[in-house]
């Protein structure tokens, strides 16, 4: 292993470095569940390894993690279980990977969802980000591969990005452990409710579809008043997703 480069934040006031313990695969008695989602080839597994201290193989291949990996860390005496979801381009199709990722965010109800995005290809990555934000409102965007972005002369205004998306944005270079402490701090703040997200909802939907979605959303909310993602379920119903229809019928959303 290469020597760990100390990130600026590891010594700063609000990050409690002593409070961090990487737990590897020991995930018993956790307080919070954290899901790790993202496009293939964004260094998702590297982020996973940086958070847990594990050494999962991370190939330069789109779609490497197919089986779900789990790991854990402890921060400020709270234990977090981290679940590495398969890398997908979207959650709208029906491939095995996408269903696994979607089901976990939807039914596994993670306390926080970390969305890893490649800073060099933000537009493409936002496709998945925006979909996840329709499902869950407890999310943080981990803007990874910042080192490459810097080499490519790409600058991202993180504050206005966070404002547009309605969730915290943390720039990282997980390969060099940069930004990981900030990420952990943000995860803990979302988990504990210190940060409340107001996620972006998909606009620009054609009028006739938006009308159908609104009608359906109203009906769903009437039946399940506490549901956070009625609009997304409406999308799925309009798509005719048999999986979601069955879940509705069997009452898995309650």
């Amino acid at each position: 292993m290469e020597t760990k480069i100390k990130s600026a934040c590891e010594t700063c006031a609000y990050f409690n470095a002593e409070g961090l313990k990487k737990l590897g695969i020991n995930t018993e008695n956790f307080d919070f569940v954290v899901a790790l989602a993202g496009n293939p080839n964004t260094g998702k597994s590297t982020v996973f390894n940086a958070l847990t201290g594990l050494r999962q193989h991370t190939g330069n291949w789109p779609g490497k993690t197919v089986t779900r990996a789990e790991g854990g860390f402890e921060y400020n005496t709270q234990k977090y279980k981290l679940v590495d979801l398969p890398g997908t381009y979207s959650l709208l199709s029906t491939s095995e990977d996408e269903e696994a990722a979607r089901d976990f965010i939807l039914f596994g109800k993670p306390n926080v969802t970390v969305i890893v995005a490649d800073a060099n290809r933000l537009e493409r990555n936002l496709n998945l980000v925006l979909q996840i934000l329709e499902i869950t409102d407890k999310a943080v965007l981990c803007l990874n591969l910042m080192d490459e972005a810097k080499r490519n002369n790409i600058t991202i205004d993180e504050r206005s990005l966070a404002r547009d998306l309605g969730i915290p944005v943390v720039p990282t270079s997980a390969r060099y452990n940069k930004g990981i402490p900030e990420l952990i701090q943000t995860i803990s703040e979302i988990a504990n409710g210190t940060i409340v997200c107001k996620p972006h909802r998909i606009k620009n939907v054609p009028e006739n579809i938006e009308k159908a979605v609104k009608t359906l959303t109203a009906k769903i909310e009437k039946e399940f008043p506490s549901i956070p993602n009625s609009r997304w379920i409406a999308f799925r119903l309009l798509e005719g997703d048999a999986h979601i229809i069955n879940a509705l019928k069997s009452g898995e959303f309650v």
């Binding site: 979207s90 709208l92 491939s95 496709n127």
Partner: peptide, 11 residues
């Protein structure tokens, strides 16, 4: 089917 969706997802 799947191929179409995949193309859309890929941008």
């Amino acid at each position: 089917g799947e191929s179409r969706r995949r193309l859309l997802d890929l941008g």
